[in-house]
Amino acid sequence: MTKSRNGDKEIDFVAKKAGNIEYYQVTYVMGAKETRDREFGAYDGLKDNYPKYVLSTDTLDFSQNGIVHLNLEKWLLEAGNDKESFQLTDKTMQSKMSEENDER
């Protein structure tokens, strides 16, 4: 699991397993348009076809332009049931959320 840069933008997590890649952006809530623009915009210009996700505590689906928005709690529960899936630990997610709250 690594962070990556896409030009001047940062992709929070890049998960690699058995030659496959998945990209993850993580934010607490996406109620503000600026937040949605920042989180989904991190993928602008990324020209590969690997899955791209934005995780948040929101229950509304903000998916757009082929980028999938997932509810964090639901994603964590489903990832815990699928041992072959790409996984970010709960601790990693909590750390990321704490960083965002500290920035506010």
Rank of each mutant, 00 (worst) to 15 (best):
M1W: 09
T2W: 03
K3N: 14
S4L: 15
R5P: 00
R5S: 10
R5F: 14
R5N: 12
N6F: 05
D8G: 07
K9T: 12
K9G: 04
K9N: 14
E10N: 05
I11T: 06
F13Y: 15
A15K: 08
A15H: 08
K17Q: 13
K17Y: 07
K17A: 09
G19E: 14
G19D: 12
G19R: 08
G19P: 08
I21L: 09
I21P: 00
Y23I: 00
Y28G: 01
Y28A: 07
Y28M: 10
V29Y: 13
V29E: 11
V29A: 07
G31W: 14
G31L: 10
G31I: 02
G31P: 08
A32H: 14
K33N: 13
K33C: 08
E34V: 13
E34K: 14
E34S: 15
R36D: 13
R36I: 14
D37F: 11
R38N: 07
E39M: 06
E39D: 07
F40A: 03
G41K: 00
D44V: 05
D44A: 14
D44T: 10
G45P: 12
G45Q: 13
L46K: 14
L46T: 14
K47D: 15
K47R: 14
N49S: 09
N49L: 09
Y50T: 11
Y50I: 07
P51C: 02
K52F: 03
K52I: 04
K52D: 02
Y53T: 02
V54M: 08
L55N: 02
T57G: 03
T57I: 10
D58G: 06
T59C: 04
T59A: 03
L60A: 11
D61Y: 04
F62C: 04
S63A: 01
Q64Y: 04
N65P: 01
N65F: 07
G66C: 04
I67R: 02
I67V: 10
V68C: 05
V68A: 09
H69L: 02
H69F: 07
H69N: 02
H69K: 08
L70H: 07
L70Q: 15
N71L: 06
N71S: 07
L72V: 11
E73T: 06
E73C: 04
E73R: 08
W75M: 08
W75R: 01
W75D: 00
L76G: 02
L77T: 12
E78V: 10
A79L: 02
A79M: 11
A79S: 15
G80Y: 03
G80V: 05
N81H: 12
N81K: 15
D82E: 12
D82S: 06
K83Y: 12
K83Q: 12
E84N: 12
S85P: 01
S85W: 03
F86G: 01
Q87A: 09
Q87N: 09
L88M: 11
L88H: 00
T89K: 02
D90I: 06
D90V: 07
K91F: 11
M93D: 00
M93A: 04
M93Y: 08
Q94V: 04
Q94Y: 06
S95P: 00
K96V: 01
M97N: 01
S98T: 09
E99R: 08
E99F: 04
E100V: 03
E100Q: 06
E100D: 01
N101W: 09
D102E: 11
D102T: 03
D102C: 03
E103K: 13
R104L: 09
R104M: 07
